[in-house]
Design a protein around this nucleic acid. Structure first.
Lengths: 150, 150
DNA sequence: TATTGTTATACTCTATAACTATA
DNA sequence: TATAGTTATAGAGTATAACAATA
């Protein structure tokens, strides 16, 4: 198959859109949104309660937005706020059992989905895919950043 | 390189996030947003003025949202509303010179970006990439839709 | 009665700025 | 004075529901 770079980039954008839609639909079913789900995944990855300030760094968003996210997640029973033992300004955010279970399920399902979506492809195709993706990611990290859009 | 399907899917999600960020930054520089830019591109692709109802279908969003998008694009000088010759309920949306120029520039730059980002990769890698992407898109279109998330 | 576009309302993501309590 | 989190406000994407004008 003859493939030019424009075709490849167009496909990358289309895939991006589709994965986003699928992710959103899956999360909506269980009462989460992408931003809120990521809070749970970050907390699970960290393994221990986190300060909102730390969440702000990990999620690369503003402290104000963390407040809003935690407000909703707390009222939904996914996380709980707790006092920091020594710093009375700080708030520790911990996963509840419900939140922990949801995060674990998301991780498990991500692996299952990968196998279901890609398991029947030859290793050479997967390798070519990852080479191109990594190449793209590397170029996007570079300081000169060429423009691109939909 | 040994690549499993989880790695590949994770890379796909990361690429999706990065492309989205880049696109957004590029558009913000020229006073557009992804949703508004897509209106211009759809109008350019169509080649003639479109009813808001048609835009609603092409953009796969509600008529209400089209109203909001066109309101902003019209006040920014990107598009102009006009009367339908026979149906007085309908509104025809046309690109202005400014909007047409912007759409054309976006299209040109998309091609340039593709070459800049991918031009130095071997054709075999690009072919592998497109095979995997098309395979993923095909699976996502299938009716049984396995779940996936970030 | 069906269709086009609009007003009204709402939820989510995300940001900046000003403020409170604490360090 | 610096930091952690909050209240206040705002713009953007997106949706549903009710409604007006017209077909």
């Amino acid at each position: 198959m003859q493939v030019d770079s424009i075709t490849a980039l167009d496909r990358a954008f289309e895939l991006a859109a589709r994965l986003g839609e699928l992710m959103q639909a899956t999360l909506t079913e269980r009462g989460l949104t992408p931003a809120r789900a990521e809070v749970l995944l970050v907390l699970r990855l960290h393994g221990r309660p986190m300060l909102q300030r730390e969440l702000s760094h990990s999620l690369r968003c503003t402290p104000r937005h963390v407040t809003a996210l935690i407000d909703v997640l707390e009222s939904g029973g996914w996380v709980a706020r707790g006092r920091h033992p020594t710093d009375r300004r700080a708030t520790l955010v911990a996963l509840t059992d419900q939140g922990s279970g949801a995060a674990e399920r998301m991780d498990t399902e991500r692996r299952a989905a990968a196998h279901s979506l890609l398991g029947d492809l030859p290793a050479t195709a997967l390798a070519g895919f990852v080479i191109v993706v990594d190449h793209l990611l590397g170029q996007l990290d570079a300081p000169h950043l060429p423009p691109a859009e939909a």
